[in-house]
Amino acid sequence: MSEDSNPTEPGTVPPKRAVRRHHRTRMIAWARRSSMFMDMDTKDRDRFARKDHDHLASCSCWMCGNPRRWLGEPTLQERRAAMFHPLDPEIDR
């Protein structure tokens, strides 16, 4: 990709490194906010956010985990299909 190309033009690829950096920064900020009420000082909170920003899920119990796995709820895609084809027996399989 050349220096003067616009990444929003059709047919161009967005810069992957910039997207990765953006999401990493966003997740570190989320980890920092979510650890606000833990009994940590600022230095430990920053260390926690930088270390654990990639895996913030505390557990996979039935309340925190995947609802399809634990409760048998349909996925969003299955719910949309049921809305558009409510009486189609092929969709229920």
Rank of each mutant, 00 (worst) to 15 (best):
M83G: 11
C64G: 05
R79Q: 03
D52E: 11
G72F: 12
K51M: 05
K51F: 06
T42R: 14
D44T: 15
S58N: 15
W70D: 01
N66A: 00
R79F: 00
M38L: 08
T75C: 11
K43W: 02
N66W: 06
C64R: 08
E78W: 03
D39T: 07
L56Y: 03
M38E: 10
D39Q: 15
E73N: 14
M38D: 14
D54Q: 10
P74M: 00
S58Y: 03
W62E: 14
M38Q: 15
N66R: 09
M83N: 02
L76W: 11
F48A: 01
S60K: 14
M38V: 06
R50Y: 06
R68W: 04
M40Q: 01
S58L: 15
E78I: 04
E73Q: 06
L76Q: 06
A49Y: 00
M63C: 15
N66E: 04
G72C: 04
D46S: 00
A49H: 10
M63V: 10
D41T: 10
A81C: 07
L71N: 11
C61F: 10
R45Q: 09
F48C: 05
R45A: 02
A81D: 03
D46E: 05
K51D: 01
R68H: 11
R80C: 09
H53Q: 06
M83L: 11
L76C: 04
L76N: 03
R79S: 04
P74C: 04
E73P: 01
R80M: 13
R47N: 09
C61N: 01
A49W: 01
F48I: 05
L71R: 10
R47D: 12
C61A: 03
H53R: 04
D52T: 02
N66D: 12
R69H: 13
W70I: 02
C64H: 11
D46Q: 06
